[in-house]
Design a protein around this nucleic acid. Sequence first.
DNA 1: ATCCTACATTGGACTAAGTCCAAGTCAAGG
DNA 2: CCTTGACTTGGACTTAGTCCAATGTAGGAT
Lengths: 124, 124
Amino acid sequence: MTAQRRVVAEVLDGEHVHLTADEVHARAVAKLPEISRATVYNTLGELVSLGEVIEVSTDKRAKRYDPNAHRPHHHLVCAQCGAIRDVHPTGNPLSDLPDSERFGFTVSDVEVTYRGLCPNCAAA
Amino acid sequence: MTAQRRVVAEVLDGEHVHLTADEVHARAVAKLPEISRATVYNTLGELVSLGEVIEVSTDKRAKRYDPNAHRPHHHLVCAQCGAIRDVHPTGNPLSDLPDSERFGFTVSDVEVTYRGLCPNCAAA
DNA sequence: ATCCTACATTGGACTAAGTCCAAGTCAAGG
DNA sequence: CCTTGACTTGGACTTAGTCCAATGTAGGAT
């Protein structure tokens, strides 16, 4: 556990947000100016493998990193401004997929993304 | 409706697959050698706005284009080799999202991605 | 306390995917 | 036949991310 890794972990711990790798890097630099982008990518990759952080691809551009990995949840995204909220739907989508629709796959995970307009963008 | 647009539409009509923009371009070039990448992107963008084609971001790298836009469906992706199948789960995830979890959003769409291993990769 | 070694970090080059734009082309109407 | 406007082209540019060789460092062994 090096200083760099601690800083990256701190950035994600701080508030519960969904940051891109570049945003994580920017905030990490604020705490430890000489940290490099490569290290941020490495560390994020490790956190993901450890299951501490989830990669979310709600955005077409960049992956986002969600530190709220321990409580299963899904995402609600504003199609206009890109705002993201964590949501907890009832029911388990995995049980909605009958065997006949699994094509022999071993299905282990499901990711649900709701899209719509946030109150702000809907008003505008 | 120009020759270029017809070719792009044909490429997507042919078989029911999930192609990246580059794959679409490659196949379009086979039919109309002088077609440019920019035109393919433009045309794909228009098809998406028209609702003829769906953008799928199952892959971390490139967007994929799914011509099966008229029958609502979701996707099952192999975490290893990236194979994609269309699936039709029972139930409607939209109804699984209570008002209290909508944060004032106008929710209009939901995208479900199942992940797992395809028979091939599971065997290996 | 010092040395070693393995691993972490750095920075810069590189790639992939996509966007943007100025200039060229083409078809249709006048 | 000329003009107009939309479509297309190709290349430069941007963004996100990966790779790699060189350097630095933490912590165990001595």
